[in-house]
């Protein structure tokens, strides 16, 4: 039972981080109708900036600057495509993001070299005993920060002008344009939000017990992609549900050491969960669109 609760709490923490990343996929998809395959690299970019600044500036400042750089990076990707490619086929856009992903991750890999950089977070390897479960302090903070960010996001999405413009534009772009919605601004904001969420996720993805950040975090981050899909790629709530589902599934299978075909099941569990969900609900748990053609 204690094991179970431990795995559950850790799964929620991991799932929350996945939710932040998955939300980035969803927000970008809603704004631009494109799956941003460069999202994982942008996360590494934000994390790299934070780790490089660690020690030189206060941690909070490093995180804010990391968020800024990731946001600017995301907006640049968006500008690049809307500058020339806005009217092209969605698949062409997705391939463009793959190209940017490869360029960015290659450069970041070169910069990291063989090093794993600490993010300089103040929580170190402290562990908190909650009575029912033990959890790394960094992960506990992660749950709190994630909760605050998600609430802030959903309030903005529901009530702010940006949120209304986003939802209106996602439903009917032409009608939104006829209402005076400035598509470009709304879209840039969406990409920037995705960048910020990714940079924050980088901090918690690389906190204890992970030793720090290097370019391989991109692969971990991309595990949030099946989370976004299984929640429904056009559903913000689905991103959170999907993120938690995959985080918990991963923590459980990893914790109990479930093995499959000679490997650890937790490595493939995000994709397994996604496949099962899509077989039952092709548009994802909360999505409205069938994603079989994306």
């Amino acid at each position: 039972m204690t094991d179970f609760l431990n795995y559950l709490v850790n799964g929620i923490s991991l799932g929350g981080t996945y939710a932040l990343i998955a939300l980035g996929f969803v927000v970008v998809f809603k704004a631009t109708e494109v799956v941003n395959f460069a999202h994982g690299s942008l996360l590494v970019l934000g994390g790299y900036v934070i780790a490089r600044l660690a020690g030189d500036v206060p941690f909070v400042v490093a995180v804010l600057l990391g968020c800024l750089v990731a946001a600017v990076g995301a907006v640049l990707v968006e500008r690049l495509y809307s500058w020339r490619l806005r009217d092209s086929n969605v698949n062409a856009l997705a391939i463009l993001t793959i190209g940017i992903d490869i360029l960015l991750i290659t450069e970041l890999t070169r910069r990291f070299g063989p090093d794993i950089l600490p993010t300089g977070d103040p929580w170190g390897n402290a562990v908190v005993d909650l009575g029912i479960a033990k959890i790394a302090q960094a992960r506990l903070v992660g749950i709190g920060v994630t909760a605050v960010l998600l609430v802030a996001f959903f309030v903005a999405f529901k009530y702010s002008s940006w949120g209304i413009a986003m939802r209106a534009g996602a439903e009917d772009g032409e009608a939104a344009a006829l209402m005076g919605v400035r598509r470009g601004r709304v879209t840039m904001t969406a990409w920037a939000v995705a960048g910020v969420l990714a940079a924050v996720a980088a901090v918690f993805l690389c906190a204890f017990p992970t030793p720090g950040i290097d370019a391989s975090v991109r692969q971990t981050a991309l595990r949030a992609f099946p989370a976004a899909i299984l929640g429904g790629l056009d559903s913000t709530a689905g991103a959170v549900v999907g993120g938690l589902a995959i985080g918990i599934a991963e923590a459980m299978t990893g914790g109990y050491g479930v093995r499959l075909a000679g490997g650890n099941l937790n490595d493939v569990v995000p994709y397994l969960v996604m496949l099962v969900v899509l077989l039952v609900r092709p548009s994802g748990l909360l999505g409205t669109r069938e994603l079989t053609r994306v």
């Binding site: 209304i164 939802r167 209106a168 439903e171 009917d172 009608a175 939104a176 006829l178």
Partner: peptide, 14 residues
């Protein structure tokens, strides 16, 4: 072309 998934009030806000 109203925004069917938005509320009446949100349509006006849009």
């Amino acid at each position: 072309r109203i925004f069917g998934r938005l509320s009446v009030d949100e349509n006006l806000k849009a």
